[in-house]
């Protein structure tokens, strides 16, 4: 697939684009440059991470240990001048460690809420599948609704709010698989993958001395990110594109290769991610190409393959790629 960013036909004329989209383009480009300076040769991954940030989603980084999942999360967090919390998930981590807890204050003789790790703009949850399901579930409400309820009191989380969780593949030892409900709340799952030989050489050079992360300066702040998110919301999705999204998600539900298709929440996430993708390409409208490019990242982790598909060693991403080739792009209805 072509890289939209460099296709001159694709971008909307700057004069017609509006200030909001201009800001999105400029800031996201700075963000990408900064992140790419730390993480070698992973532009698509970086791009997806920024897409998720702008689409108000949460990001799940899944890969084997040591490929830079945590580094990516930390880099993105550092690039934004906002409150950042990092939680290392372990089997003995309690839900209250995440959400916060009411403790009795002797001075005021009342219970006082001590916010947990979730109260930040960017939350990096490291090795999320090492915690027990109970602790994982503590994230549910906060991720979906941007709020936390403790002891009957609801606390609103700051905006923007981005959870970046990393996890090892579930076959690894000492892991609790993420419940489907939890997985569904992540907008996109990306795998880092091993770097290319050249990137790995560069990495040795770059990371040999002091970590580049140390010298990284924030390129934007929480307020700007919030503005960008607002701008992305205004990107136009025509009826044809919406129809295409619904067709695509519907096809995962009827596919004989899948036991579980994508949820309506997935439909919503797909549209939002597509909008962000279009905005990152400098367009004020979504193309089916945007949908196609984010579809695997947004949908693959929500699908459950049938036994046969697993036996055939086809991943859900493979099945999705098939579906993308087959589902017709609807022409506008007359």
């Amino acid at each position: 697939m072509s890289d939209l960013e460099h296709d001159p036909r694709t971008t909307t004329d700057p004069s017609a684009r509006g200030a909001g989209l201009d800001q999105v383009l400029q800031v996201s480009s700075r963000l990408a440059t900064a992140m790419n300076s730390v993480i070698e040769g992973k532009q698509p991954v970086v791009r997806t991470a920024i897409t998720v940030l702008l689409a108000e989603g949460h990001l799940l980084l899944e890969d084997v240990p040591g490929v830079g999942k945590t580094l990516l999360a930390k880099t993105l967090a550092r690039c934004i001048d906002a409150s950042v919390r990092r939680v290392q998930f372990t089997p003995d981590l309690l839900p209250s460690d995440i959400t916060g807890v009411s403790v009795f204050n002797q001075d005021v003789r009342d219970f006082e809420f001590r916010p947990g790790a979730i109260f930040a703009n960017v939350v990096v949850g490291d090795e999320i599948n090492r915690a027990s399901p109970k602790t994982q579930s503590a994230l549910l409400e906060s991720m979906e609704e941007g709020q936390v309820t403790v002891d009957g009191t609801t606390y609103v989380l700051p905006r923007p709010f981005l959870v970046m969780a990393t996890q090892n593949p579930i076959e690894m030892e000492g892991t609790y698989p993420l419940p489907e409900a939890q997985r569904d709340r992540f907008m996109a799952r990306i795998s880092m993958g091993y770097p290319s030989a050249r990137s790995e050489l560069d990495m040795l050079e770059l990371h040999g001395g002091a970590s580049p992360l140390e010298s990284l300066q924030p390129v934007t702040d929480a307020a700007t990110v919030q503005q960008m998110i607002e701008a992305v919301r205004t990107v136009h999705a025509s009826p044809a594109v919406r129809q295409y999204i619904v067709d695509l998600v519907g096809s995962t539900r009827s596919s004989s290769a899948l036991r579980l298709g994508a949820s309506p929440r997935a439909t919503l996430h797909l549209l939002r991610a597509s909008r962000a993708h279009a905005a990152l390409s400098g367009r004020d409208h979504v193309l089916p190409d945007d949908v196609q490019q984010v579809a695997v990242a947004v949908l693959a982790h929500r699908l459950i393959p049938t036994g046969e598909t697993q036996m055939a060693r086809r991943s859900t991403a493979d099945v999705l790629a098939d579906l993308l080739q087959r589902v017709r792009v609807p022409a506008p209805t007359r």
Partner: peptide, 12 residues
């Protein structure tokens, strides 16, 4: 062009 091609893919 392929069945699931977008206009852009079709043009390529």
């Amino acid at each position: 062009p392929g069945d699931g091609s977008t206009p852009r893919q079709a043009s390529h």
